[in-house]
């Protein structure tokens, strides 16, 4: 049985405005259909019977806010997701980055860090990690804590190993972590060149210039206007001839960047041409 939405369109608008003005977390330009689904999902899981009840809880219980943010923002991710993407990174992009004396990569919306470790592995295998820094950012401090620890369920390793091998990874994947009962911990040296930090794509500015910006499956939760704003933020954060990498169903086709960026192969990687 699919319950009738507890939070309707007008409720949603009101709630998002209030969360933005009270807490500074601005979700007003998120994709309406997705965020409405996420918020109604919270009502079901946390058993809020009415919109009023949910609204009261969020606006009067600051500790509930972090739960709200965690549920509204999607934190599903995996290592070496879309192996052909990583294969292209490994073979076409990373060697290009190697010509720089200092490599800067920004993983925006890194969530629990699976992509961060994937990229760090690629940099190590290319023997470039010693001169590279990965900035891994997310809006949500809780997921960053997980990312910093690098501890993941052992049940995921079969899939991640397959993904790694399909991306043409040649090492024994298990050398990158140590297993402990039902969890694995990725090796310390993989996060030695990573800076984890909160960053809100909606409200925070560009904080550095990079040769590679990776933001995968984050923009799908934003409406077109916000996507455009974030594309401009990325453009301002990329050195000339830098690369922008997106999720497999995301595109810069609807943005101005389309004019000045050139797509690499058929992957969702674009090169800044000026």
């Amino acid at each position: 049985m699919i319950a009738i939405d507890i939070v309707g369109d007008e409720d949603l608008e009101l709630l998002l405005e209030e969360v933005a003005s009270v807490y500074g977390y601005d979700f007003t330009d998120y994709s309406k259909a997705s965020i409405k689904r996420r918020i109604n999902r919270i009502c079901l899981i946390d058993k809020h019977k009415s919109f009023t009840e949910l609204r009261y809880k969020i606006l009067n219980d600051q500790s509930y806010l972090s739960r709200f943010i965690e549920e509204v923002t999607v934190n599903v991710t995996e290592m070496f997701r879309d192996p052909t993407f990583y294969k292209t990174l490994k073979e076409k992009i990373i060697p290009q980055l190697g010509v720089n004396s200092f490599i800067k990569v920004w993983i925006a919306g890194c969530s629990t860090g699976e992509e961060v470790y994937s990229i760090s592995i690629l940099l190590h295998e290319a023997k470039l990690a010693h001169k590279a820094i990965i900035y891994a950012t997310d809006i949500n401090p809780t997921v960053l804590e997980t990312a910093k620890k690098g501890i993941y369920p052992i049940s995921q390793m079969k899939l991640y190993t397959e993904n790694y091998q399909n991306s043409n990874g040649t090492e024994d994947f298990s050398t990158y972590y140590s297993a402990n009962y039902d969890h694995v911990k990725f090796k310390e040296y993989l996060r030695k060149n990573v800076i984890f930090s909160t960053h809100n794509l909606v409200s925070d500015r560009s904080f550095n210039e990079f040769q590679l910006v990776i933001c995968r499956n984050v923009l799908i939760y934003f409406d077109k206007i916000l996507q455009d704003k974030v594309f401009n933020l990325f453009d301002g954060s990329l050195e000339s001839l830098g690369y922008l990498a997106l999720g497999s169903k995301e595109t810069i086709r609807f943005s101005d960047l389309n004019l000045t960026y050139k797509q690499i192969n058929k992957e969702k990687i674009w090169k800044k041409t000026r």
Binding site: F102, H130, A132, N193, V194, N208
Partner: peptide, 19 residues
């Protein structure tokens, strides 16, 4: 310019960026 908000991050940058 490079930037860091704490010593740990600053150290990471110094180690990898010899510029």
């Amino acid at each position: 310019c490079e930037t860091a908000t704490n010593f740990e991050d600053a150290h990471k940058i110094l180690i990898s960026n010899h510029n």
